[in-house]
Design a protein around this nucleic acid. Structure first.
Lengths: 230, 230
DNA sequence: GCATATTTGTCCGTATGTATA
DNA sequence: CTATACATACGGACAAATATG
């Protein structure tokens, strides 16, 4: 199936709420799932006609995704799928440590709400299911969901949104990983460990465990990146 | 001077890089400085013709500002200047505490870089100048700059951007404050205090001072909001 | 509740400027 | 250097939704 035909298949999805939003949703999924490769240019004309939307509409969607850092916009050259550097990777983990560690640290004094912990438990279970089904993409999704749950402990809509963006960027990067299983699998057990500490409500302890977790994950990812670069 | 004429005065500024970006800059300033009031609707037609840009261009700028949370977009109704609720206010301070406290806390082990501390000192001095000149808007700007500097201690471009957005939202809220002097003035001395602790590189101590600072600031702002609401 | 006017959402055609083969 | 392709920006058009009387 040619790229254009596959894009055209998404066309039927266009017809409900706001065209720009739906368009952005479609493109976001396509980018995160690696249908478009990092660095690839998204031409207004071809994509617009393939999806059956005008350039004006498409450009508005591009602006949205650019602001989400999934696309980069170069003046008079167009938009390109974001190409993460090692610096980006390190920075994303800086943000994750700040946000996730800060969120669990805030548990001291404010014990976690039951439904938030339940959401994290669900994410762990979903990871187990994906593991059994050898669904590596699903395993990655469950992992993201788990960490989205950690950020949600802060109880802040703005932090939630920030975290969504950070994880989306990271996913963009995962997509270039050669062996998703080796990367995601070990974190299933560690998620369980983090969750159990969080359930006790001990913020400082949870922060220590989580920070080590994130350091390891970052290190592994940077190594994989370097290995893939050569 | 009528609003339209004053808007038209900005027209001469249009002529350098990308129209959409410059347009967004102009509108952002106008919003933050209170030229447009919270809740006010920004009509495509009137603003577009006043600034001499087409509707398509203006709509792209609107998208940008909507994503920055300065405008809210209601389908088929248009865009409105964001109206902050108390919940928003509290949430913004949640984010500030997470980011700013996390940033200074990270100083333990990683002493602050000299140029970052220098930037904060500059902001303090700028606040002194504004104070002497009775320039309350300038005082607010200096204060924002100081806290932008605190966030910058994290050394993360993404955190910097996040902080820019948070402070822009907050400014949008300040604009409805009746007595800016009473609000900003006491923080001049406290900024100095925070800076001196940061200079010692003691992260934990700096975090304690800063957290108290932010709690006070939040409390004062929430009170002012409630007082203005009746 | 209805009819009208206004405004947004979307698309198209086109002119101009910019980058690249 | 020229030619081509493309992004930028404009203005007009029309349907659909909303606001107004």
């Amino acid at each position: 199936m040619s790229p254009d035909l596959e894009l055209a298949a998404d066309r039927r999805l266009l017809g409900r709420t706001s065209t720009v939003e739906r368009l952005a949703d479609i493109l976001r999924t396509r980018i995160i799932e690696g249908f478009f490769s990092p660095g690839e240019r998204l031409a207004e004309d071809s994509i617009g006609s393939a999806l059956g939307v005008s350039r004006n509409t498409l450009r508005e969607a591009f602006r949205l995704l650019t602001h989400e850092r999934l696309l980069v916009h170069e003046l008079n050259r167009g938009v390109f799928v974001c190409k993460l550097t090692v610096d980006d990777l390190v920075d994303l983990y800086r943000v994750r440590k700040l946000v996730e560690c800060g969120a669990v640290r805030g548990l001291d004094g404010h014990p976690p709400e039951a439904d938030r912990v339940a959401a994290m438990a669900t994410a762990v279970a979903q990871g187990d299911d994906a593991m059994r089904a050898s669904d590596w993409r699903g395993l990655g999704t469950a992992n993201m969901l788990f960490h989205q749950g950690i950020a949600a402990l802060a109880g802040s809509p703005r932090v939630d949104e920030l975290m969504r963006g950070v994880l989306a960027e990271l996913r963009l990067h995962f997509q270039s990983m050669s062996d998703p299983r080796r990367f995601h699998e070990p974190y299933l057990e560690r998620n369980r460990e983090v969750l159990s500490v969080i359930e006790t409500g001990a913020g400082q302890a949870a922060e220590r465990v989580l920070r080590m977790y994130l350091d390891d994950s970052e290190h592994q990812l940077v190594e994989a990146y370097r290995a893939a670069a050569r």
